[in-house]
Design a protein around this nucleic acid. Structure first.
Lengths: 197, 197
DNA sequence: CATCATTGTTGTCATCGTCTACTTTGGGGT
DNA sequence: ACCCCAAAGTAGACGATGACAACAATGATG
């Protein structure tokens, strides 16, 4: 019983990040405090300071982890063999599912409060995420399935539609399940436009 | 000189909101404290409590004001006589301009942290904003300029594209000026889709 | 086995949001 | 014209937080 924890935790940094992400998911970012985190982890209130210079530094690390996971999810969900529309729909579904399950984290990821150092690594995370979509667009363009225009811009447009829906879901304007449910429609309208043909 | 301010401020509530919005714009929401606000307004640290039960109550009031202004901007920018594309482009420009000038406020508006009472009034603000776009969509549909489909959904899609771009701009992924600059393209792709015709 | 950089701890500080008890003020009812 | 009382502002206290500094335990490296 009395197994007093060893003086050194082993991997406090990881433990803190894990606990932080759970809190973020369950109670929201507002009730995420370094001291509470320390308490949950059974460590003194100043211990986190050894691993994160700042509260912001921890948030940055959290966001960075989010980008990592998001990229993996998207890369895993991409099926390059499919034709444009189902391929894009699959990716969209993956993104919206991630957004629904990691609302607060996603908000954090897009929050640009990041400290000088982390900003670049954050940009890398964005690039990797965006890259998945960019590849799909470029592939489709090569096959003539998509209008001739700067791929960057088309990707941005696609991303905006998704990000917008995710944002509505995060803001409570739209039910997350409903958002997921309208993915097919979303991609359809994205590809075919609002104008009748 | 020694004009000691009268015991009663006159309209402290309004003064606080104004000061808060300036701080929000200039220093971000992170450095918005009730006490600092009170100091700036030359009033004791507990005075804001008379007008706002909570810090959240003040934020809610701020968000509500934002919806009011946004709705006015959009309603003012709408030119019902125009054909669909230029009409929508004008509205989009107005929205993105508002978003660029009120980044933090917009974030607050979409933040769904709101207290029980304010949630409904917040929803009304959303409806009024969305209503402007919905009307445009419905009008266009009546004229056959837009595909037959649930107008709500088409509006949501339109809103998502805009909100997404605004979000990117707010997150630093996109330069606000650049976002404004690509409005025409955005609406074009929205109406015509990514597929070649 | 001695050393010393890492990692954790305790203690302190300023700030913040909120609550309670007290004071000033000015307008409405008699 | 006056009184009274509710509204609006003040002063002080409390607990929580993020940050920092000084100190202690630990264990890897020489």
């Amino acid at each position: 019983m009395s197994r007093s924890r060893p003086y050194h935790h082993g991997d406090l940094r990881a433990a803190l990040l894990e606990s932080a992400e759970r809190t973020l998911r369950e109670k929201g970012i507002a009730s995420l405090s370094l001291r509470e985190l320390a308490r949950e982890t059974g460590v003194s209130h100043a211990a986190p300071g050894r691993h994160f210079k700042d509260k912001q530094a921890l948030l940055d690390a959290l966001a960075l982890g989010g980008y990592e996971r998001l990229a993996r999810v998207l890369e895993g969900a991409d099926e390059p063999a499919l034709p444009l529309q189902p391929r894009l729909t699959g990716l969209a579904r993956a993104y919206l599912a991630f957004a629904a399950e990691n609302t607060e984290l996603l908000t954090l990821m897009y929050a640009r409060k990041h400290e000088p150092g982390a900003a670049e690594r954050m940009a890398a995370g964005v690039d990797r995420t965006v890259g998945v979509f960019e590849r799909v667009i470029a592939d489709a363009q090569r096959r003539g399935e998509i209008v001739e225009a700067a791929p960057k811009r088309l990707t941005l447009f696609t991303g905006a539609a998704l990000h917008g829906i995710a944002g509505f879901a995060a803001g409570g304007i739209l039910d997350p399940a409903e958002a997921l449910g309208m993915t097919d429609d979303l991609i359809h309208h994205l590809l075919h436009g609002l104008r009748p043909r």
